[in-house]
Design a protein around this nucleic acid. Sequence first.
DNA 1: ACTTTGACCTGTGCGC
DNA 2: TGCGCACAGGTCAAAG
Length: 291
Amino acid sequence: MPELPEVDIVKQGLAPILTGALIERVILNRNGLRLPFAANFAQRLSGQKVIHVGRRAKYLLFTLSSSEVLLSHLGMTGNFRFAQPDPQTGEIKTGFQKHDHVIFELSGTDAPAPFLVYSDPRRFGFMELVEDIETCKFLVGLGPEPLGNALTAASLAEQLHRRKAPIKATLLDQRVIAGLGNIYVCEALHRAAIDPRTRSCDLAATPGTPGPALESLVLQIRLVLNEALQAGGSTLKDFRKVDGGGGYFQHRFFVYDREGEPCLNENCKGTITRIVQSGRSSFYCPECQNT
DNA sequence: ACTTTGACCTGTGCGC
DNA sequence: TGCGCACAGGTCAAAG
């Protein structure tokens, strides 16, 4: 599901509620998600206060009073919501749904309900408790945040100039830029008029030097992510904001999931085409994406 | 060293 | 109505 804008929207929804909250206890309804839960995962969280809620790439980072960090990746279908106990019995488990895997009972916060529920039908997400995020294997090696100052056309050119893989595949590589996924890569390439099949190295004029297309690409990546953030993210099926509402950026896609429909660029008569690159759908306009 | 494929899961939508 | 297949926002290990 969630790419950088969606994960950030979740962070924005959770941060004001969770910061300062006490985790009374944690209930696990299975042994793990994509990865097994760490030993004593629930016990280690219980009694801790949440000090800070942050994000790096597509990871949510909950800093705890022990200075450990709870790291949460939403995979394709992970989401958080607040829930009430069953009004009849007060039971925590009743009234919850099939794919509610982790339940946090909170106190010391004016949350809309006392239980924070992590649900994830496909279980591609995972949670990990890490002592030191500086050396954490999930975070080391991640590329720059696309909305931060570390990403520049020159820094991207440095990454691209020796890669022969299509630019589409390279932009999905979290070591190159951290946080992009299939939707926003397709959209950014369209806005920058770059064919997704273009060899990455062909966008770097000389080693470390961006050509004009690369300057445009960096700009358009930033623009599309910011617009999606403004719109509350993209809700296809599973993505929900913490308050249960959906984002609406999906109504502003120029290419994603628009196979066979007309290109929306003014003066372009092209038809959006779907191809498969490294096993994933790429949507693009063969007429105006010709760099 | 590089790139593509398959695997991990469940749900949904489509064609027959 | 039901069945089977293709496909889905992500990532990793394995195979080419």
